[in-house]
Design a binder for these strands. Structure first.
Lengths: 156, 156
DNA sequence: ATTGTTATTGTAAATTAATTGCAATAAGAA
DNA sequence: TTCTTATTGCAATTAATTTACAATAACAAT
């Protein structure tokens, strides 16, 4: 499988841009963890590894990483955007606990059928979708119910 | 059916807060259109109607409107959050054209089944979900393909 | 290899969305 | 009508993101 770096180099060449060690460091850092991130977090992770890349360079790289298909916007939370790697990742959805912030990722097979059906029905060329669920995870739900003296064991 | 205003008044009373004409004006404006909005747009719409409500008051009202179940965050775009009325609206998903910005709303019946299945599988108390599709609408898709001299009539 | 063009970088300043401090006002209970 | 204090408008603040600019460095052409 082509590495994220190679994908990016190809994209850069196609666009007539220039590749830089800074951008490659950013990509390496993102794909060394394979998980959601935000700009500040990524900046700090890279600084921990002696990288002196400016935050502005991360902000400037992100549209290119999206355009080249390496990452995408995941969600807006805590006043800023969060991203996630998508290259080499199967399309997944999120289940997020609004109490503790825990995120469960899963692949929903049914989505392909829905996409096909919608594309036909609404004459759309559907390229992407975002499916996120929010609620309370079992732990938080139980914690709350213990406090409220409500019995909701049926959840577990 | 109970009006959005009544729902809000009940919520305010429950919480021991105070209702104000400003908040009622905001709610009336939102539910006079029944469509997505952002703070700035809402502010301008209200100013057009001689209302002198400060933008800060809109920002301060929004968490209450969400808490009371009248509206919810719809999506983050163009650098800021967009909201949509949900009270009196059936749960719907979005199909958004990334070219012209057109938004098609639809109700996806299958979602209830998916929610039930996920709740069991992951032991989550799922309260809400967000399902958005992005791509090109038929018109934009054809426009692009005309330019590219590519035949994709199969979409229509 | 060397050179020349110009995209990219780091820094700092600017911009924009959203929040907050504060004094004046007004909602709603007494 | 009075009192308490939540809410308002305004202005200042905070935080995320973008941008101006001079220095640097990619990379195509020599």
């Amino acid at each position: 499988m082509i590495s994220p770096l190679e994908v990016f180099r190809t994209y850069i060449k196609e666009k007539g841009l220039r590749n830089t060690p800074e951008r490659e460091t950013i990509i390496r850092e993102i794909f060394s963890v394979h998980d959601h991130f935000d700009v500040d977090e990524l900046f700090l992770r890279m600084r921990d590894q002696k990288s002196k890349i400016a935050k502005a360079s991360i902000y400037r790289a992100i549209p290119l990483l999206i355009e080249s298909g390496l990452i995408k916007e995941a969600f807006f939370e805590d006043g800023h955007l969060h991203y996630e790697p998508i290259y080499g990742h199967s399309r997944h959805c999120h289940l997020r606990c609004i109490c503790c912030g825990k995120v469960v990722e899963f692949v929903e097979e049914e989505m392909d059928n829905i996409v096909d059906r919608l594309a036909k029905e609404y004459h759309f060329n559907i390229l992407d979708h975002r499916l996120d669920f929010t609620g309370y995870c079992a732990e938080c739900n139980n914690k709350m119910n213990d406090q409220d003296n409500v019995d909701t064991k049926e959840l577990l």
